[in-house]
Write a protein that binds this DNA or RNA. Structure first.
Length: 470
RNA sequence: GACCCCUUCGUCUAGUGGCCUAGGACACCGGCCUUUCACGCCGGCAACACGGGUUCGAGUCCCGUAGGGGUCACCA
């Protein structure tokens, strides 16, 4: 597909003003998928040009989030803040060639400009008042910003891999600031210079950047550089249909981790948001790698649906192997329990896992449902369990305990005894099994009760029965 | 407001002019299985925003309308 061209290089370029939110995670995923599927490189660049709004904690959260998601990047992380000299150098070149100019307009002036433009219903933006003005007229003591002298005629066209051909009239675009009055580079300048210097061939990002792409294209042209291939992917929206952002309901990926979602499930789900491969719903990352193309990315924004993620996560949990699930669920269990699990308890957890994982959609649910195995007697009954253990039921449990004491302690042996007991009492199995479950697990739902009894062990199980018997 | 983008079941989507009386998945509602809850299986509900064209034929192409979204900083 790309055989006669240079190798693909993509990048994910978050600004460290907060955690890695779900939209960013998907952008990273798509960049990663595209680069990896093309045999190219996927780089990471932290856009910390605005030092005031950036934080080390945010940088760490982003790195951690990407690692947790399994989106490993090539090479060293590039910090944009470390490249300011290079950015300024390019502006110098632009200035020399007459493609940029100094602008002495004050913030107040600019504000006025915007307000009157809005009032008159005109395009908002800088009016170019210093574009051709003699620098000799520069006011005293004002540090100028440097603006790009962008074309006023014609149009700028982008051939976007997702959005198609998009064009805008050049007079819609004002002269953007490249270097602030204090000499620091703006985002527009930095991205272009960095993407160029890093050899980025494909810029895949949220389509909230689509309009930026026009300005950036003009900058590329002024610099005499070949613009990268653009692919603006639609945003992820919240349930209300509005852009999901840090200040609008978006959660950091660590929140998904804490809610007990598996990285593989989240990757799979994110793939299905805006991209698809026919009717395929559940597929591995390896398969996504085989199938992924930018062409198949849709143009319409998608809403985030927790129910579907949850369903997918349940599938991944069921398909996970027991040992891995023990590792993954352990932190959740220990946190709820308030203590670490002993070695033999971990073994028990592993043994119980097939029954547990069948009915959990998240690691949190999995942990919750496993707790009864490790709680200490006497168990605190939840409401439903308490309702099950009526006076009659407790009396029955007392008798059942005695017959159970002589049972062969495995699933078959236990089931045989309980069924015989129910027959003898002329009770339906459920009438016996439910109180039994309540007594042993302190809940009304659990894995198969005979399996639970076996895993719990004779002594512990009988003691728990004794606890609720009259 | 200006510019740009979008529009198939509640949600994610398949669909690239005839295979569509529109398919799948999640959710929802029934049923089966069953010691509970899940799982699994079976069945059901449910959509081409609207209006004009083009065409023998339109969910698919064109135009318009409506609705939604994004962007308009010396933020990124």
């Amino acid at each position: 597909m790309n055989s006669d061209k240079q190798p693909v290089v993509t990048r994910f370029a978050p600004s460290p003003t907060g955690f890695l939110h779900i939209g960013g995670a998907r952008t990273a995923l798509f960049n990663w998928l595209y680069a990896r599927s093309q045999g190219g490189k996927y780089l990471l660049r932290i856009e910390d040009t605005d030092r005031k709004r950036s934080s080390d904690a945010a940088i760490q959260a982003i790195l951690d989030g990407l690692k947790w998601l399994g989106l490993d990047w090539d090479g060293e992380v590039v910090f944009q803040s470390g490249r300011q000299a290079r950015h300024a150098e390019m502006v110098e070149k632009l200035l020399e060639e007459g493609n940029a100019y100094r602008c002495y307009a004050t913030p107040e002036e600019l504000k006025e400009m915007r307000e009157s433009a809005r009032a008159q219903g005109r395009r908002q933006g800088y009016d170019g008042r210093w574009r051709d003005r003699d620098p000799a007229e520069a006011p005293e003591g004002v540090a100028p910003a440097i603006r790009l002298r962008s074309p006023n005629d014609g149009e700028t066209v982008i051939t976007d891999q997702v959005q198609g051909t998009v064009r805008v009239a050049n007079d819609e675009l004002d002269d953007m600031i490249l270097l602030r009055g204090d000499g620091t580079p703006t985002y527009m300048l930095s991205v272009v210079v960095d993407d160029h210097d890093m050899g980025i061939t494909h810029v895949i990002r949220g389509d909230d950047h689509l309009t930026n792409a026009f300005r950036q294209t003009q900058l590329y042209q002024a610099l005499g550089w070949q613009p990268p291939v653009f692919a603006h992917i639609p945003l992820i929206h919240g349930p209300d249909g509005a852009k999901l952002s840090k200040r609008h309901g978006a959660l950091g990926v660590e929140a998904y981790r804490d809610m007990g979602y598996l990285p593989a499930a989240l990757r799979n789900y994110l793939c299905r948001l805006g991209w698809g491969h026919g009717d395929d719903e559940v597929f591995s990352t390896a398969q996504a790698l085989e199938w992924f193309t930018l062409e198949a990315v849709g143009k319409a924004p998608a809403r985030f649906d927790f129910k579907k993620l949850e369903n997918l996560n349940g599938i991944y949990i069921r398909e996970s192997d027991d040992a891995a699930l023990v590792e993954n669920a352990l932190p959740f269990i220990e946190e709820k329990l308030g203590r670490a699990l002993e070695t033999d308890e971990r073994t028990r957890l592993n043994t119980a896992m097939p029954g547990l994982k069948e009915r959990a959609k998240t690691l949190v649910e999995l942990a919750e449902s496993a707790l009864f195995y490790f709680r200490e007697r006497p168990l605190e009954l939840n409401e439903k369990a308490a309702n099950l253990l009526t006076g009659d039921a407790r009396a029955m449990i007392g008798q059942l305990r005695d017959v159970l004491a002589d049972a062969t302690w495995d699933v078959d042996g236990l089931e045989a005894v309980v069924r015989a007991f129910a027959d003898e009492k002329e009770m339906k199995l459920g009438k016996v099994a439910q109180p039994l479950r309540a007594a042993v697990t302190a809940r009304a739902t659990s894995p198969g009760i005979f399996e639970v009894l076996e895993i719990l062990g004779r002594d512990e199980a009988l003691a728990r029965l004794q606890d609720v018997a009259p």
